[in-house]
Design a protein around this nucleic acid. Structure first.
Lengths: 194, 194
DNA sequence: GAGATTTTGTACTGCACGGTACAATATGTC
DNA sequence: GACATATTGTACCGTGCAGTACAAAATCTC
């Protein structure tokens, strides 16, 4: 009961994702968020808590929304196909016309390993989780004989994600989709067995 | 004439580089800078101008100091050696024990292609200049027959720099030097002609 | 040593930010 | 319709920030 909420929580959260994605955590102000979400500050606090708590929710939603292609990529039948789908999916997501360029989990905050900032730590954790998922997929691939004996799943996962992060930086610098697609083709030449 | 300056300009600038390198532009405060440079605010302004002007000078000094290994790498006799030296040099610089991890030109600010922020634009320009230098080196290599006819110098340059940027993100997330060195080895497997 | 000149140190200003108090408003319950 | 309950809108608060005013201090010139 009580006065009914005038906005949709999920829709507002989607708007918040876009703002954080475009500006990063620190450059985003509450005014930016309120305008994009079309609500006022007390409503924001009542629904999502502080700016930092909202960011964590936005990051979560980002992982399950724009970033959900990763799980599909990992479900492909071979490790090679999975790796290529990860790379191509990253290019697509990072150079969309309706979304900000780059990746929230990389550009969301300036992160350093010894930082105390919870937001930076959350981004590092999100990236680590993403990399772990790739490594687990490649582990399975080697068990299945889908990867050579001398290929190291952890190294391959680190390599694939490194290229993805690098393309994020390039996308943030204005690189086009076509440029990044050529980077993917080159990157895949390092795949073992080719 | 006048009262003599109590500090050395270059030394103070080196300190500023380290602060910006560690914290990025936005998270760095004037208080941080003054403490690290061991001077007070009016002295900072008299010697370096605003925080933004100081950042530009720091970025310049970074390019000619910690980042100067790039020119040496490009001077190596073959394109392959140059590429590998760039990658290995990047690992070394990004995981030094006496310097912050990562790269000032990548992590110094959250950059987006359509940003108006002069600092972000300067970082993008610095990265573009770095990539152009690599491409010029690979252009020369192809003229010299050092690269196959079907290898595209611009694509190779984009690829090498993408891997460097990606390693920066990983270094900022806590990756160790050994991990990144294995990424370099994998990345070099994409080199044409191997 | 007097005066001009530059740097230094302290203390301040204006502003933008995240967060909140409080009253008004809109619903459900009895 | 009276009351409890929850959201909304406005206006505000404290804080930390970049940048600066101003006087004291240290040098050079003559």
């Amino acid at each position: 009961m009580g006065r009914p909420r005038k906005f949709d929580i999920d829709e507002a959260l989607d708007r918040a994702v876009l703002v954080f994605w475009e500006l990063g955590y620190e450059r985003t102000t509450l005014t930016d968020l309120c305008e994009a979400m079309n609500i006022n500050r007390p409503s924001l606090y009542a629904a999502f808590g502080t700016k930092e708590e909202l960011f964590h929710r936005a990051l979560d939603r980002y992982a399950n929304g724009p970033d959900a292609y990763e799980a599909e990529a990992l479900a492909l039948p071979t490790a090679r196909a999975a790796a290529e789908a990860l790379l191509r999916g990253a290019v697509e997501r990072q150079t969309g016309v309706d979304t900000p360029h780059g990746c929230l989990a990389v550009l969301g905050a300036t992160t350093h390993p010894d930082t105390e900032a919870p937001v930076a730590r959350a981004l590092i954790a999100a990236r680590t989780a993403g990399e772990d998922a790739v490594r687990a997929r490649f582990d399975r691939a080697r068990d299945e004989g889908d990867l050579p004996e001398d290929a190291d799943p952890a190294e391959l996962a680190a390599y694939v994600r490194t290229v993805i992060y690098g393309m994020t930086v390039k996308a943030a610098g204005g690189a086009t989709r076509a440029e990044l697609e050529r980077v993917v083709e080159l990157a895949m030449r390092a795949w073992p067995g080719d």
